[in-house]
């Protein structure tokens, strides 16, 4: 199978709720959505953010929007004003996730 960077198949937005980062990815075309569902599992996201995400990763499916939403618990250095990060709201985690390499048959 061909390796592709997720950014070719999806765009993304991310933000925060306390120490939990919220990363949503949206298929660029409807036919990409099943590939996202198959490849971008909660386990893979947890692995991808190893060292950043200290808690669990939850995944929610939104087929109506061609989107997956991930909650990355304990991922923002305490979150809000407690964090010492340059990005305490996880605003850049969107494209951090889009760096992931996945198996995509044909695009």
């Amino acid at each position: 199978m061909a390796k592709r960077k997720l950014i070719e198949l999806a765009h993304a937005r991310s933000g925060d709720k306390g120490d939990t980062a919220n990363v949503g990815i949206i298929a660029r075309k409807p036919e990409y959505y099943p590939i996202l569902v198959r490849e971008v599992t909660a386990e893979r996201v947890k692995q991808h953010f190893a060292g950043i995400c200290k808690g669990k990763v939850e995944r929610f499916e939104l087929p109506n929007l061609g989107a997956l939403n991930f909650l990355l618990h304990e991922s923002l250095d305490g979150g809000g004003t407690l964090a010492l990060k340059a990005d305490p709201q996880g605003k850049t985690y969107s494209t951090a996730l889009l760096r992931m390499e996945i198996d995509a048959d044909s695009l």
Binding site: H11, R13, K17, N22, G24, I26, F60, E61, L62, P63, N64, L65, A67, N69, L71
Partner: peptide, 27 residues
Amino acid sequence: VASINEMGDPHEYITPDCVADFTTIHL
């Protein structure tokens, strides 16, 4: 459609007024 996509916890967006379900949105 691409510019407006933004989500919270999609099944249960809880406010004082109701619990909204993002999985029902049709755009």
